[in-house]
Amino acid sequence: MNRVQRRRFAQATAFALLAFATFLILAIMVGIISFVASQGIGAISWEFLTAFPRSGMTEGGIFPAIVGTFYLAMGTTLISLPLGVFAAIYLVEYSYQGRLIRLIRIGINNLAGVPSIVFGLFGLALFVRHLGLGVSLLSGSLTLAFFVLPLVIRASEEALLAVPQGFREGALALGATKWQSVYTVVLPTAVPAILTGGILALGIAAGQTAPIIFTAAAFFTPRLPDSIFSPIMALPFHIYVMASESAHFAVTRHLQFGTALVLLAIVFGINITAIIIRSQMRKRRRW
């Protein structure tokens, strides 16, 4: 081989390896999904989705865990979305570069890096014990809300930054105050993108286990949660309990697969919705 051929060969090999690695990752993903789907689909029935667990959680359905996860995700989003959007409004619309802003940004970045189990400890110490909220939907939602907050802030910041500066100038030049320009022009323009961030937060909250083990989750509840102070069942925790902690783990495999499939379907459903909204938005955007 001459030099040119050698270089071409090296490049072809390298590219092939990179492509292989990328598709290996995709293959792993497809493998995980199809594995869970094929093993879990048999367990899915109307009863499985709408009934309570029976016989020491070896039979029956996962209805309370679905409801609990739904409540938890909603509670988390209701708390974190406004807080995150307001924080992003400050960072994008009101602040100029400075020490304080740098400090706040370091705070957000570091909060994003705090391990989920540490959030669980924090929630246990502050919400469950110190504030006396107990192991409850509220404690879990608050804990998860702070867990997803950095993500909501970043998504909202991106949404606001994507609003053209001309809209702000136009509003201000017409005699709008700062807040009026934000409220009447910037925010409405950014809403779809902000919602995408909110949906992503919903998906993350639905899938988390570690932050809720000490703050919200119960092995089993005989009733659906009747207030924000009730402990709840949740799909991720239910999977963990059935697969790792239960004495009957071997005989309930099909139920575990079924639960995992339901959880995956919910999380993917949420994420795919967000991805679709985002791509539609990019297509329709005209500024």
Binding site: P164, G166, F167, E169, G170, A173, L174, G175, T177, T189
Partner: peptide, 19 residues
């Protein structure tokens, strides 16, 4: 705010609001 009501502005790139 009162000042900008009396001194209006038209920009380089047309910037109608998305309304």
């Amino acid at each position: 705010v009162g000042l900008r009501k009396e001194i209006g502005m038209v920009f380089q790139r047309p910037n109608p609001f998305p309304k």
